[in-house]
């Protein structure tokens, strides 16, 4: 199977403190990867480097066959700014805090980048937005402003906003952590539907049952390294490492 993401030897330090040490994984096209791990283990930073919100210190990253950075003499060397932008358009990121644009209507939140970045016509962008909102079950909210929506609805808008640019791979950084259980279910349902459509995704989550149910592969990170990885059945059902066992057990009451 073709790889959407091929990451090897990723390193990252903040102010001399190494918080990612030799992270490697691959994400095949059409697969769902879940990343679990305790707070501060580097999950967000990993996603933020792949989506270009942070720079890698060292390592190699290929996204849909294009090299974003590669290791030269122990340092990550990035491709040209033009290519960085082009690769950036292949990736989408959904944030824990939604980060919708409060001054734009729901519709405009979803059309703005289509028009300004992809140069789509207004009609085309709106058609796309409406069909995505329909898919998210919130087509009636198109004219509203983010503050008028529940957290779950806002998160669905932000997923629609990311999908509108037709990314090849979508990342979620704790998409339900700001939501109460009922709204969490709404969002998990949306992500599950995307998985059924074979959207390539990587999800950082604390929803263990959900992660186990939807992913093809699961990674457990701690203190900047991948401690253990495997199929969800293996990682959640029969973890080998002591740290993994402890972490997963802590979610089971």
């Amino acid at each position: 199977m073709e790889n959407m993401i091929k990451l090897t030897g990723l390193r990252k330090a903040f102010g001399g403190l190494e918080i990612l040490r030799d992270i490697s994984f691959t994400l095949p096209k059409g697969n769902v990867l879940s990343i679990i791990g305790p707070s501060g283990s580097g999950k967000s930073t990993t996603l933020r480097i792949i989506t270009q919100l942070e720079k890698a210190d060292d390592g190699n990253l290929e996204i849909a066959g294009e090299t974003l950075f590669s290791s030269v003499d122990g340092k990550a060397v990035y491709t040209t700014p033009d290519k960085e932008r082009a690769i950036g358009l292949k990736t989408g990121l959904v944030f824990q805090q939604f980060n919708l644009f409060p001054h734009f209507s729901v519709l405009r939140n979803i059309t703005e980048a289509q028009k300004a970045v992809l140069r789509r016509s207004k009609d085309e962008a709106e058609e796309k937005a409406i069909s995505l909102l329909r898919k998210m079950g919130i087509a009636d909210k198109a004219k509203q402003y983010p503050y008028q929506l529940s957290g779950g609805q806002q998160q669905r808008v932000s997923i629609a906003r990311a999908l509108a640019l037709d990314p090849e791979v979508l990342f979620f950084d704790e998409p339900t952590s700001a939501l109460d259980p009922e709204l969490t279910r709404e969002i998990l349902k949306v992500i599950r539907e995307l998985a059924e459509e074979k959207m390539t995704m990587a999800v950082v989550t604390h929803e263990m049952h959900f992660a186990r149910a939807i992913s093809d592969w699961a990674i457990f990170m701690d203190k900047g390294v991948i401690v253990e990885e495997g199929t969800p059945e293996a990682l959640f059902g029969d973890p080998q490492e002591e740290r993994t066992k402890k972490f997963i057990a802590s979610f089971e009451e």
């Binding site: 989506t51 919100l53 990736t91 990121l93 805090q97 919708l100 409060p102 001054h103 703005e112 970045v117």
Partner: peptide, 27 residues
């Protein structure tokens, strides 16, 4: 202005200038 506004704009591919004039400045 929340840092998340800049990050969302960056991830969506808006240029720096577009982000400033259309996303940040109005707020």
């Amino acid at each position: 202005i929340d840092r998340g506004q800049y990050e969302a704009a960056k991830v969506l591919g808006f240029s720096k200038a577009y982000t400033f004039f259309h996303i940040i400045l109005p707020q």
